[in-house]
């Protein structure tokens, strides 16, 4: 049973649909006591980082997430919120992943939007099993997570950034596995096996 954390920033429905297609039992909730009944948690996210962090603080979800010991997957903004700090709204984040979130400052289009492949993958990482460098994933973001000790895959758009991170039970992906066709399904299947 997978719990999808609802915090007013997101595409919970897209993630729910993706899990339904994989026949995974799941529910969407913003209540810590309900989320406690899940074997693993998905933390999706589309939106603005500082207002999302303020919402997490206000609702007590911040304290809840910090103590989770079960497999936890942050997606897109959800991954960025796992980091130390974000330039988006100049705000501290959950501090679970040792990295900063920066805005793309490029002579290229921002957001980084579309399908891109991964590089320097930790191919033995449980989340990335079966993923190859030619697989493309759907990205859409204007801020990126700097590469760090917790990076398990990078992606290049003007510069190298973290496409996936992991520390202990906390995983994060910058791309949207729920929107990345077959390759994204593989990532979700891998997460459901952790």
């Amino acid at each position: 049973m997978t719990g999808i954390i609802s915090y007013n920033a997101g595409n919970t429905r897209s993630v729910s649909n993706a899990l339904a297609r994989l026949k995974e039992e799941h529910f969407i909730s913003d209540s810590p006591s309900e989320l406690d009944s899940a074997d693993r948690l998905i933390f999706p996210g589309v939106g603005e980082a500082s207002s999302a962090m303020q919402h997490l603080k206000r609702t007590g979800l911040e304290q809840y997430i910090l103590q989770v010991k079960r497999p936890f997957l942050g997606i897109c903004l959800g991954m960025q919120l796992l980091c130390q700090y974000t330039e988006e709204g100049d705000h501290s984040c959950l501090g679970l992943i040792d990295a900063q979130v920066r805005r793309f400052r490029l002579q290229m289009d921002v957001p980084h939007m579309g399908w891109n492949n991964l590089k320097q993958m930790s191919t033995s990482n449980s989340l990335l099993l079966g993923i190859v460098p030619t697989d493309d994933f759907y990205f859409v973001h204007s801020y990126y997570v700097e590469p760090s000790i917790d990076t398990i895959a990078k992606c290049k758009y003007g510069l190298d950034f973290s496409a996936a991170v992991q520390k202990d039970n906390f995983y994060g992906v910058q791309f949207h596995p729920e929107k990345s066709s077959k390759c994204g399904e593989k990532i979700l299947e891998n997460f459901l096996q952790i």
Partner: peptide, 11 residues
């Protein structure tokens, strides 16, 4: 939109 979202896994 709900129906389309349920069947596709691309943006």
């Amino acid at each position: 939109v709900e129906q389309i979202s349920a069947v596709i896994n691309i943006p």
